[in-house]
């Protein structure tokens, strides 16, 4: 953080001069998806409470789930969930000290993003097919 920095000499390296690469993207996405999932869990708790309160209460949140917007929300949250799950497993492998080969790590980053998007689309397709 440059705030409060009094040293006149050039500061290096800083955010603006980093070249974008897949592992950097997957690291940022891991944090972003984690924040999204936290709110997803809050929503899960609230929907469970409405479910427990009875059918007349559940009817109030039902359109939130069973609608085109609900289908898109499902796609988004499930994709984010699968991404965080897959990348989280990689973080656990990294914690052991394995998987740091740059080429392999970059490739896995892209594959993880692709696999989560495709499987989220597949699950959404399955679900919307089962509902209608």
């Amino acid at each position: 953080m440059a705030k409060g920095w009094t040293d006149k000499r050039p500061m290096s390296p800083h955010i603006s001069i980093w070249k974008w690469h897949p592992t950097m993207l997957s690291s940022i996405l891991h944090r972003a998806t984690g924040i999204v999932l936290y709110f997803g869990l809050l929503k899960l708790a609230v929907v469970l409470a409405f479910l427990a309160a009875g059918p007349q209460w559940f009817a109030k949140v039902e359109p939130m789930v069973y609608s085109p917007i609900g289908a898109f929300a499902f796609f988004f949250v499930v994709g984010v969930l699968i991404y965080h799950f897959l990348n989280g497993i990689r973080h656990l492998v990294w914690d052991i000290g394995a998987g740091f080969n740059p080429k392999l790590a970059n490739m896995i980053s892209l594959v993880t993003i692709l696999v989560s998007a495709v499987s989220a689309a597949y699950l959404t397709w399955l679900l919307t097919g089962a509902i209608t």
């Binding site: 479910l51 559940f58 069973y66 799950f85 989280g88 973080h91 656990l92 699950l123 089962a130």
Partner: peptide, 27 residues
């Protein structure tokens, strides 16, 4: 994280089975 990684497949499978059933399916 390990606990969640183990539970996640069961959670997603259960959700996929329950959601088409609406209120009754979820209950």
């Amino acid at each position: 994280a390990v606990v969640l990684a183990i539970l996640l497949p069961f959670f997603v499978c259960g959700l996929m089975k329950a959601l088409p059933g609406g209120y009754d399916g979820l209950m």
